[in-house]
Design a protein around this nucleic acid. Sequence first.
DNA 1: GTTGGCACTCTCCCTTTACGAGTGCTAATA
DNA 2: TATTAGCACTCGTAAAGGGAGAGTGCCAAC
Lengths: 361, 361
Amino acid sequence: MAISERKKKILAAVVDAYIRTAEPVGSKAIAESAGLGCSSATIRNELAELVAMGYLEQPHTSAGRVPTPMGYRMYVNELMDQQRLSIEESEDLNRRLNQKLQELDDTISDVSRLASQLTDYPAMALTTREAVTIVRFDLIYVDANTFIIVVMLSDHTVRNKLVRLPISVDEKMIRKLSTLFNANFTHIGEDAITPVLINSTERSADDTMGITAVISSFVIEVLSSSAAPSAFVSGENRLLNQPEFRDPDKAHRLMSYLSGGGHILPEGGLFPDSNEVRVLIGPENVAEELKDSSVVIASYDAGDNTRGLIGVVGPTRMDYSAVAAKLRFLADGLSRRLGGGEAPPEGMHNKLIIKGDTNNE
Amino acid sequence: MAISERKKKILAAVVDAYIRTAEPVGSKAIAESAGLGCSSATIRNELAELVAMGYLEQPHTSAGRVPTPMGYRMYVNELMDQQRLSIEESEDLNRRLNQKLQELDDTISDVSRLASQLTDYPAMALTTREAVTIVRFDLIYVDANTFIIVVMLSDHTVRNKLVRLPISVDEKMIRKLSTLFNANFTHIGEDAITPVLINSTERSADDTMGITAVISSFVIEVLSSSAAPSAFVSGENRLLNQPEFRDPDKAHRLMSYLSGGGHILPEGGLFPDSNEVRVLIGPENVAEELKDSSVVIASYDAGDNTRGLIGVVGPTRMDYSAVAAKLRFLADGLSRRLGGGEAPPEGMHNKLIIKGDTNNE
DNA sequence: GTTGGCACTCTCCCTTTACGAGTGCTAATA
DNA sequence: TATTAGCACTCGTAAAGGGAGAGTGCCAAC
């Protein structure tokens, strides 16, 4: 059955009111607020039909209406006025973002904290990197027992480690090792670092003291930790702001889930395109713990084959419009700062494109 | 008035039972549990006196007794059996600790996470460092637009930064700058880095492209971030396990306080000595938000003029004995791994020394 | 198709009641 | 003098009752 224009308006009014008040919405309130010139009785008829169509439900017979996940979905896809940030807001955001400019690895926790502060919901941030390789190797001789390993990675980050040896090495040996590692260990993946390679390098260097092994294990550590996606969740406690989480058990369940950050990853398959904000409403979420919460995610381009994701978790009664706008802004800002060239110019407000699972209706 | 032996036993029994059950303790329960051969009526008389003395209180006339902060204090100082960890527990702890061996800066979050997991309370970890200086400077030339700054600090950590320039530099310039910075910027504090120094270095290097400024600002960033104590709180959500935080508002208040981590610092003044675990009970805490919670803290020696602190927050009805033992173990383990030489040998169980504000009675 | 009216059905909140755990006191006992 | 048994009393909690109010569904009129 097609949904009439008036039904849409009424549905939107219900969702809007429910988002604001967290209480079932009655026909009278709608008649007064939404500017369609008809009485509460008419609204009641329409509401009954919206319930029959599955967009709304009643907690019990004589209560007002509450949107179903399907109702929210309709609202998100078609009805909500796609909120833009005001000039002041976006300036404020820009300022805060500019303060955070550091390496991406520091930023990921900041990003999630920022998203959480901004939206007043718990937020998570994560990045997945494509496999990196080492592009450059330097060993810095400090003293007879100490040297520093510095490696530059294909994603233009730099890692270092201070090595202290129980025995003495001379500067020549360090230089030799540096040359060898530059020749043998750059531009290869973690799986190419075999015992065979390590042994042959050790022999070439005349290294009888196991220095090669130390350096090799650092290489492996760097390559494997860079490949692993990192996640960060913050502001879990903001859940308690929401009336639907006044039940400590419910709140606790979700918070524990969120604290265990990594679990969000499996859903990483559905990375939204840049410029798109994805909304997952209640049962649309894969994770059992999220079945009655909603998640809004946006992704950003962190440059060098790295994509980042920022997400916000809240009750299904979430201010989708505001949250989506803020996330979009944040993601854009991050893309612009961290990412490749083709990011949109500073200050431009992108048209918001919001998508989600539309195939379940 | 002096407190008799029997009163002590009864008080201990009340605290023990209350820690276990979170419910006011009645005379009958004590008569049965504590092995002193007397009836509940006798216990009642004693209880009445303990109330008069301020060690216990009654929520209302016909309820059991609950320890007051003063009661807990007595318990912690004199009564509780100072729990040792079982062999299995300490082996498990050792294993987990060994896995976490990395740089201190990575570890601080791990430490707090570990402490939280271990105790099932929210935990925080923080370190204060003495001012560090740079002891060694290296600039690595990568290509005409790129070089890497590597600095080694007096605390034996190494920091690096990749610098990309809009203009070209040659290798000679980089070498010159490296020498100059090594000469002028090592072994000095942040406040010694004045515009005058930067300008003179810039002139000496014939640097017309502002590279000196870039490097200088990195130096300042490193020195200031190393001086700033860093804090980390985790497991806030475990608060919700405790029945006293079933009230979402109460839980939220404390959790927000904890999330804002830094606030704990002002109390840093009371760093416990190593080998001592400090317990702060309810009103003994300075922070308003902690007035009806308890904090257990231990400190460890992280080497190089750095002291770390691990703390656990919970309701006043906290299992002080178990928590103190675990924190002591953790702190010892960390001192041994990170710290100076005179740490106790591996595997030894230290005598627990527990102290606190005893001057308020 | 829309509206006013009205009986009906819920939940929410307040009060009442009953119950039981635990006390305080007193008088008896060792 | 310290301990104990007994008993009346207190108070909080949980279950049960009882409006009040918000909101519905339906019907008959427009």
